[in-house]
Computed example of a mutant assay.
Amino acid sequence: MNTPGAGILAVMPLHAISDVHGEEGLRQRLDIEKEKLPRPDRVEAALELAADLHRDDRYGREPYVNHLLRVAIRIVSHYEVHDTDVAVAGLLHDSVEDHTPELAGARGGSGTGAALAEVGERFGPRVAGLIASVTVPEPDPAGDKHVQYREHIATSLDRDPWARVVKLSDFTDNGVGILYATEPAMRHLATKYRPMTPIYRDLVNRPDTPLTEHVKQHIRDQLELAEERFRAILDTK
């Protein structure tokens, strides 16, 4: 697939890059953004691991790695966070939750703890800590899994401001991009995410969330757009 020059890719909306130029276009956009970081080589290593772990995974109509690429790009470009660890955590934010056995097995162990230890060995304890904060544990089958998900996110992100940045990018990608999902996943995701919007709005407004005010306003606008889309999906008979 032919992709445009760097100047055009640098200003294209991320979902437009996905739609028109696919994974290759997103990889090229990340190449542009990672040069703003002090350790771009670590971003490349994280992308290689993420692409390998999620190689058979899909995100609606596209490879799952596209979602991970957008999350990392948004952190650097839209959120103006030039912190290598946070960008790396964006690429790997679903790695432990979705691929525990592969990561844990690399250490000859099992379970989330071993998987996080493997991430820590490769990318450092801060990255592992960020991923731990956004990793949702297996729900208790006796309770409502959506309620448990909301409670975990609210509690975990309450104590980890930098993990909020990763999760805000993740949620924004899921919410604004929900129209790219396939049915019946679209309605399922809207049901899951709609009650989360007030939680993320509260988190982005907190004084200790490490983002500038104009970035926070951008995120608030994106949350409003996501909420409009959830409402349109769920209120349509």
Rank of each mutant, 00 (worst) to 15 (best):
residue 22 G to P: 03
residue 22 G to M: 13
residue 23 E to L: 08
residue 23 E to I: 01
residue 24 E to H: 08
residue 24 E to Y: 09
residue 25 G to C: 07
residue 27 R to A: 10
residue 27 R to W: 05
residue 28 Q to Y: 03
residue 28 Q to I: 06
residue 29 R to G: 10
residue 29 R to A: 15
residue 29 R to T: 11
residue 32 I to C: 03
residue 32 I to Q: 08
residue 33 E to Q: 11
residue 33 E to W: 00
residue 33 E to K: 07
residue 34 K to P: 04
residue 34 K to G: 10
residue 35 E to A: 08
residue 35 E to Q: 10
residue 35 E to C: 06
residue 36 K to W: 02
residue 36 K to I: 06
residue 36 K to N: 12
residue 37 L to E: 05
residue 37 L to H: 02
residue 37 L to Q: 00
residue 38 P to E: 08
residue 38 P to A: 11
residue 38 P to Q: 03
residue 39 R to G: 10
residue 40 P to I: 10
residue 40 P to V: 08
residue 40 P to H: 02
residue 40 P to M: 02
residue 41 D to T: 07
residue 42 R to T: 08
residue 44 E to Y: 01
residue 44 E to L: 10
residue 44 E to D: 15
residue 45 A to K: 15
residue 45 A to W: 05
residue 46 A to E: 14
residue 46 A to D: 09
residue 46 A to H: 06
residue 47 L to D: 06
residue 47 L to Y: 11
residue 47 L to I: 01
residue 47 L to W: 14
residue 48 E to M: 12
residue 48 E to Q: 06
residue 48 E to A: 15
residue 49 L to Y: 07
residue 50 A to F: 01
residue 51 A to S: 14
residue 52 D to N: 13
residue 53 L to H: 12
residue 53 L to P: 09
residue 53 L to R: 12
residue 53 L to Q: 05
residue 53 L to I: 05
residue 54 H to A: 05
residue 54 H to F: 01
residue 54 H to M: 04
residue 55 R to P: 00
residue 55 R to F: 10
residue 56 D to G: 13
residue 56 D to V: 10
residue 56 D to S: 14
residue 56 D to N: 15
residue 56 D to C: 13
residue 57 D to E: 14
residue 58 R to E: 14
residue 58 R to K: 14
residue 58 R to V: 15
residue 59 Y to K: 14
residue 59 Y to C: 12
residue 60 G to S: 07
residue 60 G to L: 02
residue 60 G to M: 12
residue 61 R to M: 07
residue 62 E to L: 13
residue 62 E to A: 15
residue 62 E to Y: 15
residue 64 Y to V: 02
residue 64 Y to D: 07
residue 65 V to G: 07
residue 66 N to K: 09
residue 66 N to Q: 08
residue 66 N to P: 03
residue 66 N to L: 13
residue 67 H to W: 01
residue 67 H to Y: 01
residue 67 H to T: 12
residue 67 H to F: 05
residue 67 H to A: 06
residue 67 H to Q: 10
residue 68 L to H: 04
residue 68 L to A: 15
residue 69 L to I: 00
residue 70 R to M: 15
residue 70 R to L: 08
residue 72 A to N: 08
residue 72 A to T: 11
residue 73 I to M: 04
residue 73 I to F: 02
residue 73 I to V: 12
residue 73 I to K: 10
residue 74 R to P: 02
residue 74 R to T: 11
residue 74 R to F: 03
residue 75 I to R: 09
residue 75 I to W: 08
residue 75 I to P: 06
residue 76 V to W: 04
residue 76 V to Y: 00
residue 76 V to C: 12
residue 77 S to Q: 15
residue 78 H to Y: 06
residue 78 H to I: 10
residue 79 Y to H: 14
residue 79 Y to M: 08
residue 81 V to W: 01
residue 83 D to L: 11
